[in-house]
Nucleic acid binder design. Structure first.
Length: 580
RNA sequence: GCAUCUGUAGCUCAGCUGGAUAGAGCACCUGGCUUCGAACCAGGUGGUCGGGGGUUCGAAUCCCUCCAGGUGCGCCA
């Protein structure tokens, strides 16, 4: 159990002993300022208010009951009723030593293991992946990693857009640009984006083409073998492009995680039938719609969802409902996360409400829309090229990598070319991912090459750099970083601050697993790296006049920092480096 | 019109379920490399937390209202 949890248990016990109900929040937190000690209990004032007691007197009663022998040197009452705690160095040492030998760095396994279905990335396969897919892919992936590390079962779902009217257009384009022999042999498209553009142009300009396209949609959806074959080829081709991107990004999605819109085709009619039978969907102007009083506005107008078009066609609401059933019934989800653009908030709410109304979603299964904002360019408007086109993800990553490689070549010209390129990749990709992950995901975020690759402040390179310094330290010391263990002692304030920062890792991961907000981990890792930089500056390790036990202790603290940093980065899907 | 999100230092952003004197980075200024990696560190300048009310021991945080901006809103996904 972590230091904080142990102290919190003691605080709760003292609350109870002082006559407070067991569920009174202690509001134990790390102190905002050093003069307030290491931790502070803030819950006394609130409790005193409820019981109409004098907060300082209540605080005194609690302090009298507080049994923190061996953990805390003093507990003092301050201000209107804060209790400030000063931790015992020995306790910090003991806890740090434990963490050094613990691969999970203090993170406990969950009381109940959940099955978390995570919907993320979900590119539309009609087009090439662009920057709009980046946030879902990166943030979703990081949350999956954290959930798995915590010990939950994670089922990734790449809900790709592989079904819909535009595929009729694409199939027709394929037929017109490829001979039958080529089509039989299997297609290869180097420029998916251009291919889509051309087919769209033909569709708009050529009525004959457009008719063929519409016919092909119908044929495709009714299972025509030739259309299905071409469609399948196009999907495979398009998917392999996406997989190249995943590979480059270091994202864990594979083909096995793909479960696209087309997979729900068979269940669309049953979904509609069930909605109608339950009286939830009703006819309106030829279409089938669902009215939701649960989402009515202030005047009482219900929210409306169309689940089937007047022409009998289905919409993405229908597909999403089928996906809900699949995730609950087939995947046995206990928690479902959707990493989808914030602009779809209303849609997601509607789908979830319908899932509850129909009883498809049991009360004990959670559904959460993990929304994120739009990626903006440096001008504060949606991120586009100068000519107004969306930016391909492949191009964005290539540019990031090139820029990073240039910096590596400049900063560290001694490295051989191959290593420079390798490191540049890790830094460039890491910088792009971290820039995104480190912002609160629900807000729009401004993409800036300058801020991202200046490598200063709260950036991936800063964290990676901290890691390389530790590797370098161990190399110089002639010790093995990964297996190092040594007695820790705490004398200097910088050592103490570093050790305390390390204690927080497990609670931050817990917090991130709960909130699905990776920026919380980023903020923490940046703080940790900063604490290390300060320590590294103030506390020499290998200098000749350093006593052996100090050297050992500082090496141990460094090794522990390295472990924590590397674990944190890996949860974010960012590579740690030994040199850069 | 309705719904929803946002407004914090010149810029980019944190601020956890209300907690003490609102924090970082960039930029700017002052220091620190003949020995552990200076892609770094120490320090400084800089804020009516959009405006106004309210709730209370205490508000950037909760409630109301106004202002400004973004996004969404029945047959695309």
């Amino acid at each position: 159990m972590s230091l904080k949890k142990r102290i919190n248990e003691a605080a709760t016990a003292a609350f109870v002993a002082a006559g407070l109900p067991e569920d009174t929040p202690t509001r134990l937190q790390w102190s905002a300022r050093p003069e307030f000690g290491d931790m502070q209990i803030n819950g006394v004032m609130g409790a005193a208010k409820q019981l109409k007691q004098n907060p300082r007197e209540l605080a005194q009663k609690i302090v009298d009951q507080l049994d923190l022998e061996g953990l805390v040197t003093k507990a003092e009452i301050a201000g209107p009723g804060f209790i400030n705690l000063h931790l015992e160095n020995a306790a910090i040492v003991e806890e740090s030593t434990k963490l050094l030998g613990d691969a999970r760095l203090g993170l406990e396994f969950p009381e109940t293991k959940e099955c978390v279905v995570v919907d993320y990335s979900a590119p539309n396969l009609a087009k090439e992946m662009h920057v709009g897919h980046l946030r879902s892919t990166i943030i979703g992936d990081a949350v999956c990693r954290a959930l798995e590390f915590k010990g939950h079962k994670v089922v990734r779902q790449n809900h790709i857009g592989d079904w819909g009217t535009q595929f009729g257009m694409l199939i027709t384009e394929l037929q017109q640009t490829h001979s039958q022999e080529e089509l039989d042999a299997g297609i290869s498209l180097s420029d998916l984006e251009g291919f889509y553009r051309k087919s769209k142009q033909h569709f708009d300009a050529d009525p004959v083409f457009a008719d063929l396209a519409r016919t092909n949609v119908v044929k495709l959806q009714s299972g025509d073998p030739e259309c299905r074959k071409l469609w399948k080829q196009f999907i495979d081709e398009s998917l392999s492009h996406a997989e190249d991107i995943y590979q480059k990004l270091g994202v864990l999605l594979t083909k096995a995680d793909v479960h696209g819109e087309s997979a729900y085709n068979e269940d669309l009619k049953p979904v509609i039938a069930a909605l109608v039978e339950a009286g939830i969907a009703v006819e309106d102007q030829g279409a089938l719609v669902v009215y939701l009083d649960e989402l009515a506005d202030k005047e009482g107008n219900p929210s409306v969802v169309i689940v089937q078009k007047a022409d009998g066609g289905f919409l993405y609401a229908t597909t999403d409902l089928a996906a809900i059933r699949y995730r609950v019934n087939q995947l046995h989800a206990t928690r479902c996360l959707y990493f989808i653009d914030a602009r779809q908030s209303l849609h997601m709410k509607q789908i979830f409400v319908i899932g509850r109304k129909t009883g498809w979603v049991p009360a004990n299964v959670e559904f959460e829309h993990c929304a994120f904002g739009t990626m903006m360019g440096e001008d504060g408007r949606p991120f586009k090229t100068r000519s107004g086109e969306t930016i391909k993800l492949a191009d964005l990553l290539d540019e990031a990598i090139e820029r990073a490689q240039a910096v590596v070549a400049k900063k560290n010209p001694n490295l051989d070319k191959e290593t420079q390129l390798e490191i540049g990749r890790a830094i460039g990709v890491g910088a792009v991912k971290y820039a995104d992950l480190s912002k609160v995901r629900t807000n729009d975020y401004r993409f800036s090459w300058e801020a991202m690759l200046s490598f200063e402040g709260n950036t991936a390179p800063y964290l990676q750099y901290a890691g390389t310094r530790i590797h370098s330290l161990f190399e110089k010391a002639g010790e093995d970083l990964s297996s190092f263990s040594g007695a820790i002692q705490i004398d200097q304030p910088e050592e103490r601050a570093l050790a305390l920062s390390i204690q927080r890792f497990s609670e931050v991961v817990d917090q991130m697993v709960d909130s699905t907000m990776p920026h919380e981990l980023c903020t923490y890792l940046y703080d940790l790296s900063g604490k290390f930089a300060t320590f590294y500056e103030a506390c020499p390790v290998l200098k000749p006049d350093i006593e052996p036990q100090i050297r050992e202790s500082r090496l141990a603290l460094s090794a522990l920092t390295s472990k924590t940093l590397a674990s944190g980065l890996s949860l974010l899907g960012i590579q740690s480096l030994e040199r850069m």
